[in-house]
């Protein structure tokens, strides 16, 4: 479902610099560029994904848009309001969830946490009780609402965060890696709620490291790297960038860096990624000639080091790897 109409979010040439100090006795300050002239538009009602490697600027982008950071230069607006000048108004219209367990009062119950945050967002007193119950239902926490948060599982805390951010019926939601660290069932449940909110008309900006999640949920995706947008489009658009490629996956054992470099130098190899899985490694080789590439690839690895071999179509993850050139 793609519902782009008026701009809910606009970023124009946003730069954000941070100062970092190094050294103990002789201290030096250096500037780190977190956002380097980033420009993006998100339409109202859109579910927009931001992908990128660690340090690419995803969280900085979210923090600028949620008024927690002032851009060094450039402008950012949410629902037509400037995030620097109209910060207080912006805050009334947005909700946000940062991934992880922190950000709740652990000695209070889930229900009391929601009541308190409802006060912070000036939810009318006569609505607070019903709104809290409604949201506890939405995130399936009502039966455990009176328990202290310190006894909640990570998934429950994350669902409570989502309920917390919906208390004041925000028009724009920012979800920064909301499924990080959740077990598969917890993550699936959270994705179900996100989809439900999107269907209800909310504008959602989602950052994630899970590419299948972005593929499954997002209307459009921006891939950012080193503080700049390197690609923007629907998941299908991004995948079309690798439609000429297939992926050969080789499970190998004890392969060294020299061998990987030898494989990378083969003329039919577009890119290669090594993923460590316990004692084995998985080589993901992007190539235009998958069927004909398998035999030379196996031959290039020492005998007895190759296990399972599979050939598959390129996915959004492969498109991402091609764009940013590395995996995390």
């Amino acid at each position: 479902m793609l519902r782009r109409s008026v701009g809910a979010i606009e970023l124009r040439d946003v730069r954000r610099l941070f100062r970092a100090t190094t050294g103990t006795l002789r201290r030096h300050t250096k500037e780190i560029v977190a956002l380097d002239g980033l420009s993006l538009d998100v339409g109202e009602g859109e579910l927009f994904g931001i992908l990128g490697p660690n340090g690419a600027g995803k969280t900085t982008t979210i923090k600028v848009l949620t008024t927690l950071l002032i851009p060094t230069s450039g402008t950012a607006t949410v629902m037509g309001l400037d995030v620097v000048r109209d910060a207080k108004e912006v805050r009334r219209k947005i909700g946000f969830v940062f991934g992880g367990e922190r950000g709740l009062y652990y000695r209070l119950s889930g229900r009391d946490n929601l009541r308190y945050f409802a006060e912070l967002y000036a939810v009318p007193p006569r609505e607070i009780r019903s709104r809290v119950e409604e949201l506890l239902d939405l995130v399936d926490l009502r039966p455990r609402g009176d328990e202290r948060v310190e006894g909640y599982s990570r998934g429950m805390k994350q669902r409570l965060h989502l309920a917390r951010t919906l208390l004041h019926r925000p028009r724009v939601l920012f979800l920064d890696e909301p499924t990080i660290g959740l077990d598969p069932i917890g993550a699936r449940e959270l994705r179900r709620i996100v989809r439900q909110l999107h269907e209800g008309g909310a504008t959602i900006v989602l950052t994630t490291h899970y590419l299948f999640e972005a593929d499954e949920l997002c209307d459009r995706i921006a891939v950012i790297d080193k503080g700049r947008a390197v690609a923007l489009g629907t998941p299908a658009d991004l995948k079309s960038n690798v439609s000429d490629l297939s992926v050969v996956e080789l499970e190998v054992f004890g392969i060294d860096a020299g061998t990987v470099e030898r494989l990378r130098a083969l003329d039919f190899v577009d890119s290669i990624v090594v993923e460590q899985r316990e004692l084995r490694q998985v080589l993901r080789v992007q190539t235009r000639i998958a069927e004909r590439a398998v035999a030379p690839l196996i031959a290039a690895v020492a005998a007895g080091q190759v296990g399972r071999v599979a050939v598959r179509e390129a996915t959004l993850e492969d498109a991402y790897v091609r764009l940013v050139g590395r995996v995390e």
Partner: peptide
């Protein structure tokens, strides 16, 4: 971890 939530609230 609640400081950002408090500051970013109205």
């Amino acid at each position: 971890g609640t400081l950002e939530l408090l500051v970013a609230s109205p």
